[in-house]
Design a protein around this nucleic acid. Sequence first.
RNA 1: GGGUGCGUGGUGUAGCCCGGUUAACACGUCUCCCUGUCACGGAGAAGAUCGAGGGUUCGAAUCCCUUCGCACCCGCCA
Length: 600
Amino acid sequence: MQPLERGLLVKRSHHCSELSLSHIGQTVTLAGWVASRRDHGGVIFIDVRDRYGLTQIVFDSEENAPLHATADRLRNEYVIAITGTVSVRPEGSENPHLPTGSIEIRAKTLELLNEATPLPFAIEDDVHASESLRLQHRYLDLRRPKMQQLLQLRSQVSHLTRNYLHAREFVEVETPILTKSTPEGARDYLVPSRVNPGEFFALPQSPQLFKQILMIGGMDRYFQIARCFRDEDLRLDRQPEFTQIDLEMSFVDREDIMQLIEDLIRLIFKETKQIDLPNPIPRLSFEESMGRYGTDKPDLRFDLPLQDLCQFAKTCDFQVFRRAVESGGMVKGLIIPKGAAFTRNRIDNLIDTAKEFGAKGLAWVKISDEGQLDSSIAKFLKTEALRSALPSANPGDLLIFVADQAAIVHQVLGRLRLLLGEELQLIDRTRWEPLWVIDFPMFEYDEESQRHVALHHPFTAPHPDDRAFLDSQPLQAKTLAYDFVLNGFELGGGSIRIHSPSMQEKVFDLLKISKVEAREKFGFLLDALESGAPPHGGIALGLDRLIMLLGQTESIRDTIPFPKTQKAQCLMTHAPSTVSPEQLQELSIRTTAKKPTATP
RNA sequence: GGGUGCGUGGUGUAGCCCGGUUAACACGUCUCCCUGUCACGGAGAAGAUCGAGGGUUCGAAUCCCUUCGCACCCGCCA
């Protein structure tokens, strides 16, 4: 079937959301996709859709029989241009759900710009198609208004960010995509170098070192909307390539950076969604956050805090509790409101879940509506002692306890807290609860490699009060790092950096990065630090996650026009793919995979 | 690397536990009818090797094994 009419492209005079009663009588031209066709015999209604909206077109057989006949052949997703007269809809036939619902276009000419085969799925906001089908036909998925809005939201946020930072003297600088593999951190994506056989570039996990070098280079204020690459397994909120709003400043302290970012994020929420975030944004120390919520990215949309029972445990008769505390661990619990109604089976499931999360067990106590205790460990508990240890527990509640080393207690209860918050619908989806988490420890001890590893990254400056700890008790040392958390998602993090070469060497030393390795991997940074490095610091915000939260969509993939599946593949292009033996040869590469090369 | 769930016309699902005529429903598609619809309506039609392979059985969408794909999670993500 040939297009009905082909000629010079008629230019549109308006888009599909802007015509209203004030345009009545005007001759206009619209262009777009056929969103729906309602054929009443003598009259055909076409909704034409573009990025902006929908407009109804009317083809009337009495007005123009040949044109009506051609409109009969239109199908969904055909691309058309229509010229016609803007008319008032007959009384009673207005559509209040449509911005253009009080008018329609009475068609005079129709140009068929392209046809379309029947679609694998319908273009509508309320998708019924599976995500793999959507990703295979992403060009169709992107036509959905919801996807268009998300991409526009993303553009709007980038634009606001650029304007905001430019207005504050930031310079947008591009850093290399082909760069050097570094130890620590995530697995690198590698790119072979043809002219240097056997050698590889790495794609940047972040522009971290380059932005520090830019400060040393005197740029003073840098930013970039930067693509980052990490070859780790994917999650709902994790893609192998993602985008950060990345910035760095010289001659600032952490207050300067946190203030700058708070204002930016408040601006973004206000301008795009008319949401007022708190001012100032609350802060929690890492220690408080772990102690109260069992995580360094707490979801503050619901409370359900961890309860400390160490004092109670010390004096109770239950050996498991007492020993945990006596051996340097702790006992903490959750008060589950109305949890006394849980069945034994549901409690058993909770226990299994706790074990999956790493607990050795989970003790529980039901407080009946009459205030009686029913418990797995009833014979060890004195009612009075327990009630005075947990004054906020009420009749009808369920108490659960984990006794172990602090890290395990916090991990298990932190996750149970989230799980229960979800299950018991304690999370208020209309709330926005940002916070800063500060005063992170500098290091944690990694049992596997038997050494300290940086909690943030090895360029993070220690807190000035804690420098003395670096030699004596490095695990006690805190940093000048800060994480921005919103509704339980880590949206960004940064720090004041080390600008003294001796401090940087000391930290490499503590991380057991040898002088030789430090020189080989970071020699340029060490040299640069010795050349007159200004005090500096910065932050990076995850743009994709920000859009996901702001756009209230359930997956990071909805915020990325062409995302990867959980196996890090693109279902539309079928990347990654095998390559020809010639390509590999040129790169001096031989693979050990079963399907190493493309079949010709 | 591991765990869980899903896979049935173009799409979304039911059927699967407990094997048994022609695999059901909705949407979409096609044909015809219809001058005020916007989830248009009416009449009819086409369309499925039940993800793939193997096994058990007289008989498998259904039970078993293997495998592939997608999702969620653990590990991993300085």
